[in-house]
Each structure stands twice: as structure tokens, then as C-alpha cells.
Write a protein that binds this DNA or RNA. Structure first.
Length: 410
DNA sequence: CAACCGTGGAT
DNA sequence: TATCCAAGGTT
């Protein structure tokens, strides 16, 4: 009669009740097709729901089945992922689809070890697929879950540490009500996304506020404990927007990035990394000011050359001699760990290449060969229409669209 | 472990 | 403007 209310049972029951009432209508929740669940979970890695939705719809439309994805050209898959970021997810997903076709008859296996063995599927995604698609009582601990649990149970472990995630996984397994793994795991994440948010959580509308230890102790704003990450390192890069002439009229020179590393296999504008030691804000401001001034006055070719000459050398070395015309734009792009400060210069292709070949040798002596570009990269002249079949990272899309839509005729 | 791997929204 | 960080995984 006076049996003590179990804080854990209360949590699970109230959370499930709330979820039934409050869950969002999301495209991947309209079925239990394991393939749909899988695709959505890969896309949702480090990516917001609102961003994913249109990509998910397009992707399923374009690759309706695992078989279709497995047999599609890799470029098509990458193109479908254009703008979403973390592009290795797309290539891993297709590789995993091929795994599923070869090893599991084209169906996502209802087997934790087999799912965990798929490319691009880690501990979280394994649990998400097993629980959401197959209702197996596996933990799916992501950032939302760690935030919710760290607050409700007042866990002060650093959520960046792997051990903390494993601790939470054990806890989740104990919390999952019998036969309710799918809804419970989604409810946990849904609460983190809608109520128990990182900043200013909506505790007053939270279904489990009454026994939330973090809230009771007034610690909800301090939790979860998370060590800070390093700021991205700045890199100054000079970018060439080379306008074709003659048979390359109305075209721009692009190249494809190497098969591995940052933005692997994607297309880009030619560019070079420049040395920038001890660049303080004053130097930076002065340089930008100089560039802006030059863009208004094309007669100062000496200074333009001084600024962009490593880029001239890069183009020469690649076999595309071009004449610097004007400063085009500056743009800043932040990756997870790198900050690209890009100075874009417009060039015009020099048709009489023979006349310039002599200069190549001189240029190569002027600049350290090690700093010149990879000569094995594939270069191509493209029109704006060609962009539909090539995949560009967003930073270069912005520059190219600016050029083709606003400045091409200048 | 810690570094690498994109992008954009929110505050 | 600066910082965080979102349904993480791989090396």
C-alpha cells in the first residue's frame, strides 16, 4: 500500500505516455521499413531533423530499395548527399548496402552483431536500428539521451568520454519497458529534442520533472558536463575562378579532390593553401582592405600578382595558364576542425599556352615545389549546367553560384 | 584516446 | 559576433 514510488519506473512510464501524445510526424516514422530507419539514422548523425527531411525524401525517392542503392553509380549517391556534409556517410552507406545484398539477401538483418558490422554503423546507430526497426531492447545512446539521463539522474561524468556513454547504455537497458524498446528509445531522444534542450530546457512542461534529480538540485543548466573542444585552426587559401576562352567560353575550370580525406572525391575550384604565420587582426584587416581597393582598380596588377602568385603557379603547373583579372570575393567557411578563409580571384584562360610554357620552369624555381598542387588531380572545364552532375561542397557552390548567377557577364 | 570529418540553426 | 552543437563513426 505504501510502496515507494520507483523513480526509474516513473521515468519510463511517464516518458512513454508523453511520447504517444507528443511525437512528431516524421517521414521515417510512417513505416517500420528497416531500410528507411537505417537511412534516416545515418543522415541524422550530427545533423538536425529539419535539415534531414528533404534529403531523406529525395534519397528514398531516388534509391527506393537497398538493391537500388547498392547498384547505383557512386557519383549519384554523392550527388544526392550534396550539401548535407560528412560525405563519407554517403559512401559508407552505399558500401553497407552492398554488404547487405551480398551477405543478407538484400534485407537488413534482425541481428545486432550483423548490423553493427555494417560500414558507417557504430554503437548508437546499431541500437537505433535494432530497437526502432525490430523493437529489440538495445540501447541507442546519442547526445539527446546523454543530456536527458545526465539531468534526470544527475550524472556528472563527462559525456565526451566513451566510458560515460557505456554507463548510459547500461542504464537505458534497465529502463526499457518490456516490449517497448522502439517507442522508449525514440521517446528519450524526442524529449531531448523538444523539452530537455541544451539551453533553457522547458522543465515546467517536462513529463518527468517531479523526479528529475538535476532539476531538484538546481543543476539542470550545468548538465550535462562536457569538456570543450578545440577551436578550428585557421587556414588562408587563395582560390582561382578561371574563366575559359575560345573553345572553353562560358566555362569555368574545376578539379576533383583526392579519394580520401576532407571532402573526398568532390569537385572544387582550384586553390592553394598559403603560409600565414603570425597573422594578427591588423595584418588581416590591412590585407582585406588592399584587396577590396584592388578590386575597384584593376590597374594595380603588380600588387595583385604579389597577392595571388602562388595561385598563378598552381594553375601553370596543372597545365592551365591563366591571367589574373581581379579580386572576386572573400568567403569564410568553417568545418568541424578547420576554418577556411578564402580569397577568390577571377582569372581568364590564356589560349596561347605555348608562349607561357617557358615561364613554367621559372615559376617552379620561384616557389617551393612541395607547396604546389597534386598534378594527378583531374581538371575539367564546366558550364553551369554541368554542375547538375558533379558534386560540390557548399563552400564552392556559394562561389560558383555567385559567379554564374550574378557576375558572369562582367 | 584524440584527431578527423560538413553544415547550418539557435542564442 | 562568437559559441555551441545536432538522432556519430572511423582511424
Amino acid at each position: 500500500m505504501h510502496q515507494q514510488i520507483n523513480s526509474r519506473q516513473y521515468f519510463s512510464i511517464e516518458l512513454l505516455t508523453w511520447y504517444e501524445r507528443s511525437k512528431r510526424d516524421l517521414p521515417w516514422r510512417r513505416s517500420r521499413n528497416p531500410y528507411y530507419i537505417w537511412v534516416s539514422e545515418i543522415m541524422l548523425q550530427q545533423t538536425r531533423v529539419d535539415t534531414v527531411i528533404p534529403y531523406f525524401e529525395r534519397f528514398i525517392d531516388r534509391f527506393p530499395t537497398i538493391e537500388a542503392l547498392a547498384t547505383a553509380p557512386e557519383e549519384d549517391v554523392l550527388k544526392c548527399w550534396e550539401g548535407l556534409g560528412y560525405y563519407s556517410r554517403a559512401r559508407n552507406l552505399q558500401t553497407a548496402a552492398q554488404q547487405v545484398v551480398e551477405l543478407h539477401g538484400g534485407k537488413v538483418p534482425d541481428d545486432t552483431s550483423a548490423v553493427a558490422a555494417l560500414k558507417g554503423v557504430g554503437p548508437y546507430t546499431t541500437g537505433a536500428i535494432m530497437s526502432i526497426a525490430f523493437n529489440r531492447p538495445e540501447p541507442a545512446v546519442d547526445g539527446n539521451v546523454m543530456r536527458v539521463l545526465s539531468r534526470y539522474f544527475l550524472i556528472e561524468e563527462d559525456i565526451v568520454k566513451v566510458g560515460t556513454r557505456k554507463l548510459m547504455e547500461k542504464l537505458v537497458v534497465e529502463l526499457i519497458p518490456d516490449g517497448r524498446a522502439s517507442d522508449f528509445n525514440q521517446a528519450l531522444m524526442e524529449l531531448g529534442a523538444l523539452v530537455c534542450t541544451p539551453k533553457s530546457p522547458s522543465c515546467l512542461t517536462c513529463p518527468v520533472m517531479a523526479y528529475c534529480a538535476g532539476r531538484i538540485e538546481g543543476m539542470e543548466m550545468q548538465l550535462p558536463i562536457k569538456s570543450k573542444s578545440k577551436p578550428p585552426r585557421p587556414e588562408l587559401r587563395y582560390v582561382a575562378l578561371v574563366e575559359g576562352t575560345g573553345e572553353h567560353a562560358d566555362k569555368v575550370l574545376v578539379r576533383r579532390r583526392p579519394d580520401t580525406g576532407l571532402l573526398a572525391k568532390m569537385w572544387e575550384l582550384p586553390h592553394v593553401l598559403t603560409e600565414q604565420k603570425n597573422r594578427n587582426s591588423n595584418q588581416k584587416a590591412a590585407e582585406i582592405k588592399a584587396n577590396n581597393k584592388l578590386s575597384e582598380n584593376n590597374s594595380s596588377h603588380l600588387m595583385l600578382d604579389a597577392l595571388a602568385s602562388p595561385l598563378d603557379a598552381e594553375l601553370l603547373t596543372a597545365g592551365f595558364p591563366a591571367k589574373l583579372q581581379q579580386h572576386f570575393m572573400n568567403i569564410e567557411h568553417i568545418f568541424s576542425h578547420i576554418l577556411w578563409e578564402m580569397h577568390v580571384f577571377k582569372y581568364v584562360e590564356i589560349e596561347q599556352a605555348e608562349q607561357v610554357l617557358v615561364a613554367v620552369a621559372e615559376q617552379q624555381q620561384t616557389y617551393d615545389v612541395n607547396h604546389l598542387g597534386d598534378e594527378s588531380l583531374e581538371y575539367r572545364w564546366i558550364t553551369q549546367a554541368d554542375m547538375e552532375s558533379l558534386t560540390f561542397p557548399n563552400v564552392f557552390l556559394k562561389i560558383l553560384n555567385q559567379y554564374f548567377n550574378n557576375h558572369k557577364s562582367i
